[in-house]
Nucleic acid binder design. Sequence first.
DNA 1: CAGCATCCGCAAGGATACTG
DNA 2: CAGTATCCTTGCGGATGCTG
Lengths: 125, 125
Amino acid sequence: MTKIKESSTYNANREIVLQECPVTYVMNKIGGHWKPIILYHLLSGSKRYSEIKRAMPHISEKMLIQHLKQLENDNLLTREAKPVVPPYVTYTLTESGKELDSVIKAMSMWAFKDMKRNRVEEPVC
Amino acid sequence: MTKIKESSTYNANREIVLQECPVTYVMNKIGGHWKPIILYHLLSGSKRYSEIKRAMPHISEKMLIQHLKQLENDNLLTREAKPVVPPYVTYTLTESGKELDSVIKAMSMWAFKDMKRNRVEEPVC
DNA sequence: CAGCATCCGCAAGGATACTG
DNA sequence: CAGTATCCTTGCGGATGCTG
């Protein structure tokens, strides 16, 4: 998307109205196919890199690392590397990240209801 | 992503465990940057095409139409075209779509909290 | 084990012009 | 007004090989 700093529209009285949008804020942080799934797995507790990878067999290593970094930069999780051989790296949700459980849980509940309504199977991660 | 029908991992007892994931189900329906934002705008009631467009100045027409179609195919909204000139088309959430308000509201609430925590402005749609 | 570097194909998405 | 159609670019994301 072309980066636009400001954007405007008009209300019925032809006054300029900035369209503010909390959902856009969320999508900028956890948008994309994989991020909510990563968060979903970390909600049950800190996990090692290999554990997350095993839990998400469909994601490539490149994408997993990339998204973990972005989530770290956005302060949703922290990365802790123990200085041992072989490496031992764990990822843990921050307070911000943990609070996303309300979003993830709402997603899960809706999913179960909708899958039942449409009589479909739950997909693999 | 390469399409893989089945995928497996193992638990501590070396039993095969399928990783099922409700979040993946949700992301398959409302993943991508724009869909949750479209839903957000429709939660306040049915809207004409032009109203949605005006509310989302950053999305291109092509993307908007494309995502509206996909949401319609996924039974999250319905499209109703009045046979008049000029055309009058309204988009309305289905029952499934309306039930996503729990997800969208959880997103919004988290956004407000996180924006306050990080002292940032609310972005434009 | 937990990554990083590089190459590269392809599809998502932008820009533009046209229409019932 | 509410879209289609077409072209074209960008960058997502896969594949592969290497490393502290």
